[in-house]
């Protein structure tokens, strides 16, 4: 692993801001799963021991459950998720015409709840929202990440790329300082992965529960002592071609 990073570092410093995958050479993109211990890898790989599967199973039940004043289940409109939801997570986030902003998978689930089911939105990081999101994303497991090409997303994605490469917070580190230039090295006891959002929502051992990509991002932003920012679209673009793992497990 250590032999790999110097190549990446030189690239990133030189062409920062020009190419979306600056810093990680073509063919070097690797999911966080590759940086974990064999024990944690085994935990993710076996559905019987992967604790994230509990959320997927709960999501499967919620999918069938009629909700709201419309008294309709997700299945009432979308039928069999293994058919209708296959590939959806692999291309999210999408552009939401109503708000003229990008919307992530959990946001879309909540907007269906409000508009179609006429139910109260689910709280961010609530078990129910994580469960439904994990269930939907699980239908894309094994598929390559292929972000939506909608041109209206471009300005948001570009802004994310700029922020990813900007030095932020009291520590003045950019996401790229660690995840493009120094992946594979250790920050304290933790190996620095490339920050690809392949397995969200995922079970994090440190949390002892399932959490969203937004929650994971907040961890790194608190780490550099910065205010939160929205980077989901850029991260998904960086991860193009990597396989969806939901529900993943991470240290």
């Amino acid at each position: 692993m250590h032999a790999l990073w110097p190549l990446a570092a030189v690239g990133a410093a030189a062409i920062c801001g020009i190419v979306s995958a600056a810093g990680i050479e073509d063919g070097e993109e690797r999911s966080g799963v590759d940086f974990m211990t064999p024990e944690t890898q085994a935990l993710q790989a076996d559905d019987m021991s992967n604790p994230g599967m509990l959320w997927v199973l709960q999501g499967e039940q919620l999918w069938q459950q009629a909700e709201g004043r419309a008294d309709v289940a997700c299945a009432g409109c979308h039928d069999d998720a293994s058919q209708t939801m296959r590939g959806v997570a692999a291309r999210y986030s999408a552009f939401d015409a109503a708000t003229e902003r990008p919307i992530d998978l959990a946001g879309r689930i909540n907007s269906c709840r409000a508009e179609r089911q006429q139910a109260e939105p689910l709280a961010p990081e609530s078990d129910a929202l994580l469960a439904l999101t994990a269930y939907v994303a699980h239908q894309s497991r094994g598929m390559p990440i292929t972000p939506a090409t909608d041109a209206r997303l471009a300005p948001f994605r570009d802004n994310g790329r700029r922020l990813f490469q900007s030095r932020i917070g009291q520590l003045e580190l950019s996401c790229a300082s660690c995840h493009d230039d120094d992946w594979g090295k250790r920050l304290g006891g933790s190996v620095i992965p490339q920050a690809h959002p392949t397995g969200y929502p995922l079970f994090r051992l440190e949390w002892q529960t399932v959490g969203s990509l937004q929650r994971r991002l907040r961890n790194c932003m608190i780490g550099v002592r910065a205010e939160p920012l929205d980077l989901e679209l850029h991260l998904t673009e960086r991860a193009r071609g990597l396989l969806v793992e939901t529900p993943a497990v991470r240290p």
């Binding site: 932020i168 917070g169 003045e172 910065a226």
Partner: peptide, 22 residues
Amino acid sequence: NTIMPSYYRVEDEQGRRVATVW
């Protein structure tokens, strides 16, 4: 371009999104 933080410097905070407490 070092990654080592400047431990005794408070500058250019504008645009760096420094969290309020820090």
